[in-house]
């Protein structure tokens, strides 16, 4: 009895000694979301998935804050750094400036930013920052291929959130994909002017469907929930973005342009907590499995279309084809 007790005590003390050591090696990871935040079933929720992967696989302690205005970025990033988080993520390129300031104020904290990078010159004074960029145009190209081989009326649509470089890459890649297969297809392009308004997405997509389009691809955050709803109502196709959005309408989401923001956050964190980490940018395209088609279970495209898309994916992976990332280059592929 006595022996068991002392054994238990000894084990207990051992734990008391060891556990703090362990918990010190468990990273504390926090995310600062841009305006909009969680619940978009898309970009931000994918980042949150990455956080949950860290929790599950590394036992990381996690938290997040959703920003309300651009002036929130700085205090939110800084307060997580102050609260003792080892790695702090900014989800969205608008945070680039705030992150630069905060990263310099907290050189001992590691920072990661999605959809933005810095110049080599800048990284010299911010060795604690990882920029993660994606080749959205490559993934969108594959959706363009699927779209061109799915449309029966040769009219399709693209719904963007707001028009800036990240979203332009979606548009350019999609157009290039469609017109590479059939340069005669008409593509309606429209922007909702928001990322957080499903009603606007629905209005824009509905008007495209009324004009005859039968496939609409969106890159518009939570507006896309409305785009998919519109497709569901008229019985036509929508293509999801960032996350697998098939569950929003299993019979009317053709496919989803998967952007592995979750992997960006997950692998990025693993890179950041390496002691030897030095600030730089990683760019994730098809070759890095950073972008791609939705899993087969969520694919509603025909076998032929899917095979064609995979064929192109292979070409892009091997560097035999370079997808244009600017609208102007993609537009040259159209024949009128």
């Amino acid at each position: 009895m006595k022996r068991t007790l002392s054994l238990a005590l000894a084990i207990g003390m051992l734990f008391a000694l060891v556990v703090p050591v362990f918990s010190a090696s468990v990273p504390k990871v926090g995310i600062v979301f841009d305006i909009g935040g969680r619940g978009d079933q898309s970009f931000n929720d994918a980042a949150y998935e990455g956080l949950m992967m860290l929790k599950k696989e590394l036992g990381a302690q996690t938290t997040y804050i959703e920003s309300k205005t651009p002036s929130d970025y700085e205090p939110n990033l800084a307060s997580l750094a102050r609260e003792g988080y080892d790695v702090v993520w900014g989800i969205g390129f608008l945070m680039a400036d705030a992150m630069k300031k905060v990263a310099q104020q907290y050189p001992n904290v590691k920072f990661g930013i999605i959809d933005s990078g810095y110049s080599d010159e800048e990284y010299k004074s911010m060795k604690n920052v990882l920029g993660v960029l994606f080749k959205e145009h490559e993934g969108s190209f594959l959706q363009g291929v699927l779209t061109a081989l799915t449309t029966k009326v040769n009219k399709v649509g693209f719904v963007g959130g707001m028009d800036f470089p990240v979203i332009e890459r979606f548009e350019a890649g999609f157009k290039a994909g469609v017109w590479t297969i059939n340069p005669k297809i008409e593509i309606f392009v429209n922007y909702t002017g928001a990322f957080d308004d499903p009603a606007k997405g629905k209005a824009v997509a509905s008007s495209m469907f009324r004009r005859g389009a039968d496939v609409v691809f969106h890159a518009s955050g939570a507006c896309g929930i409305g785009v998919i709803e519109a497709a569901d109502e008229v019985g036509k196709w929508a293509i999801g973005v960032d996350s697998d959005q098939n569950h929003l309408s299993p019979k009317h989401v053709l496919n989803s342009m998967i952007k592995r923001v979750d992997l960006g956050v997950f692998n990025g964190t693993k890179m950041l907590i390496e002691p030897k980490f030095v600030g730089h940018t990683v760019t994730l395209g098809i070759a890095e499995d950073g972008v791609g088609l939705a899993p087969e279970a969520s694919n509603n495209a025909s076998k032929e279309a899917t095979a064609k898309a995979l064929e192109w994916a292979d070409k892009i992976r091997k560097g035999q084809y370079v997808v244009p990332e600017f609208r102007a280059d993609a537009d040259k592929l159209q024949s009128k």
């Binding site: 205005t69 651009p70 707001m162």
Partner: peptide
Amino acid sequence: VQVCGIQYKFLDLFAFEGF
């Protein structure tokens, strides 16, 4: 005051700030 005191520049707004 927000620009001159806090942001030092205008950042594109995704939505109304709510102030």
